[in-house]
Amino acid sequence: MLLSFPREEKEWTRLFNGQNLEGWVPKIHRHDVGENYANTFRVENGQILVSYADYADFGERYGHLFYEKPFSSFHLKWEYRFTEEWLTDAPIYTYRNSGVMFHSQSPESILKVQDWPISVEYQMLAEEKEGVSRPTGNMCSPGTDVFFEGEKDPRHCINSTSPTFRWDEWVKAELIVYRDSIIHHLVNGDTVLTYTQPQIGGGVANRFDPEIKIDGAPLSSGYIGLQSEGQGVLFREILIREL
């Protein structure tokens, strides 16, 4: 007789220690990997703050702060809220817009002139106009493709079913990722989007190393990155548990 036992759940690990950016690597468009231009990513009051206080202008400096090691199957959770800061020379779509990239290429493989990493994004949005729906926890796909409702979806972004939140509300976000099979986005504990088969493909990412972008290749692991696109945002309680 075979006995089955439930798998022991791994402990949660803090990716952000609440004190400094130890273990994190910045990569900002038009700058070398490791250069935290104008102190874009900083720690204040136990939170990671994306700040443009020392910028003269945005200058298409799309940035990401990557954790130093890749992950494959995992449960990631964090809390975020936006700040009032937004650079008016950034594209209008970046207003009250940020995100967390995952299954990304390594920061070291992102070229200095490359704008976005080849990755999948948990997109975070807040209310832009009062009374107009703008869900958060959406999926965007720079240099990647996913399957939604059984078919490869041509859209760069797929909206979730979440409610709309004010910019100054703290939101609890979660990602549950099973390699290159199935992915769930959660907002405040509710599953708001599910899709499958993340793979390299599609457009949007520009000036990448062509040897990296092998369209159709499954994305079964990669790096996690916090986004900076001209909108100020705060991150806290960044925890991961490998599955």
Rank of each mutant, 00 (worst) to 15 (best):
G150M: 14
E128S: 11
D57F: 07
F71E: 07
S73G: 10
I48P: 06
N97K: 05
Q123M: 11
R166G: 12
P142M: 11
Y55C: 00
G131F: 03
Q114S: 12
P107E: 06
A126T: 01
V120E: 10
I48M: 09
H103N: 02
Y95D: 05
K69P: 03
Y80M: 12
Q123N: 13
I110H: 00
F147W: 03
S73H: 09
F58R: 13
K152E: 06
C157P: 03
L175G: 00
Q114I: 07
H75V: 11
E85K: 06
A53D: 14
F147E: 01
D168S: 08
W167T: 05
F58W: 14
E121R: 11
A126W: 00
P117E: 01
L87R: 07
R96L: 12
S106V: 04
Y178E: 15
M124D: 03
K129S: 02
D54Y: 08
K152L: 01
W116C: 05
Q47R: 14
L76M: 02
N159K: 04
A53T: 04
P91Q: 05
S181Q: 04
V132C: 01
V132N: 08
E149Y: 01
T144I: 01
S141N: 14
E79S: 14
N45C: 09
K172I: 04
E68F: 07
M101C: 13
Y93D: 13
W78T: 03
S119M: 01
I110N: 00
E169D: 10
S162L: 08
Y122H: 08
T83R: 15
W170H: 10
T88H: 04
Y55P: 02
R166C: 05
I176Q: 13
Q47W: 07
